[in-house]
Amino acid sequence: MSKIQKAPKPQEVQATIKEFTREFLGEVLEAELEEFLGYKKYERSDSDNYRNGYTPKSVKTTCGPIELLVPRDRKGEFEPQLIRKRQTMLDEIENQITALYAKGMSTRDIQEILSDMYGFDVSPSLISKITDRILPKIKEWQARPLKEKYFLLWIDCIFYNIREDGQVRKKAIYVVISIDLEGYKEILGFWIDGTESSRFWLGVLNDLKARGVRDVFIFSVDGLTGLDKAIEATFPKADIQRCVVHQIRNSLRYVSWKDKRELARDLKKVYGAPTLEVAEREFEDFSAKWGEKYPHVVKSWEANWEALTTFFRYPVEIRRVMYTTNIIESVNSKFRKATAGRRVFPTEESLLKCLYMAAMELERKWRRPIKDWPSIYAQLSILFEDRL
């Protein structure tokens, strides 16, 4: 009766895989040099360049660190493609580092994961250098050509702590999110600036124009200083809608807890009205009821009334897109998740890397037009017939 063969131990399997990987990498490097020189090993040739021994090299892989012998040529012109000169880890590890960074993990977290999984140490500075390789992609993405016309652009602001000149400063990151004329969502770019001004916004909007944008039907904004004037100067035909949800939040910020629910219910009668005329009557009732107790709320709505009620010019299907913030909230939620592990960013570039990779993940999920797009486009084709 034959003996039952014992199953190999996990460490034995790992050692076998590691040795196979080492042999495979060595064979590929030999094949690369053979292709470069133009003749096989031990084959006679008239070439004045030939093999010249090996250089030992340690490479980090998913099997752990592997010691390799990299073949050389006499002239030193051979450039391996599988494992490039000065490369200390395989591309698969670098891709994993970039993916973990995109998920919001800090360089220290990634360092610990690689150590636990593969048994080698990677310094935080090396992790930063690896993720820095996407910086040229970010510049290319930020300057990419855009479509000529957009149905709707949201401009939103998020604040992050960034270290600058030895101090931690809170800086605003402005993000522009769009819906094109096919109903697809897209992030057009990020802009960093310490202060809001008409000049700054002119720069942002002219950047969009320089990248090909010729017309925007509607802007949805959050009362950012100087933005309305910049929009009027660069896209004079566009309607401007002040974000109703942000206005409600600002209104409730200084309202007593016991009054919040009732006041919010009364405000909903205003922005949820079927027509502008009904909204004006509801606001008169709202002012009479709450004006004495919360005059700042009433004054804020009065001051911004025209921009807050732009959406009443449009059919219901378009209104929902204009005054709801579902798309903005989904973007902000993704950005918060991607940056949750970092209270302070060492540089602006480190923050942009996180936001860019989060934006790429979002856009991979945005593969369908927004809800009710055929109905919305039918309305747009009538309202903007001369601009489509």
Rank of each mutant, 00 (worst) to 15 (best):
96 Q>T: 15
93 I>H: 07
83 I>C: 02
65 P>K: 10
77 E>Q: 14
71 P>M: 09
74 R>S: 04
80 P>C: 00
101 Y>L: 08
88 T>I: 12
96 Q>K: 15
73 D>A: 02
77 E>T: 14
54 Y>P: 06
52 N>M: 03
91 D>C: 01
67 E>T: 05
52 N>H: 04
72 R>W: 03
99 A>F: 11
62 T>Y: 06
59 V>D: 08
88 T>S: 10
62 T>R: 15
85 K>G: 00
99 A>Y: 13
52 N>G: 01
79 E>G: 02
55 T>R: 12
60 K>P: 02
53 G>Y: 05
74 R>I: 02
79 E>N: 09
70 V>F: 08
82 L>A: 01
95 N>M: 15
88 T>Y: 14
54 Y>A: 09
66 I>K: 05
75 K>I: 06
58 S>N: 15
61 T>A: 08
80 P>V: 00
83 I>F: 00
63 C>P: 02
93 I>Q: 07
59 V>F: 15
66 I>Y: 06
87 Q>G: 03
95 N>A: 14
60 K>N: 11
69 L>I: 11
86 R>G: 03
57 K>C: 07
95 N>W: 08
74 R>P: 00
60 K>C: 04
65 P>H: 09
68 L>M: 11
93 I>M: 06
85 K>T: 01
59 V>S: 13
90 L>K: 10
93 I>C: 08
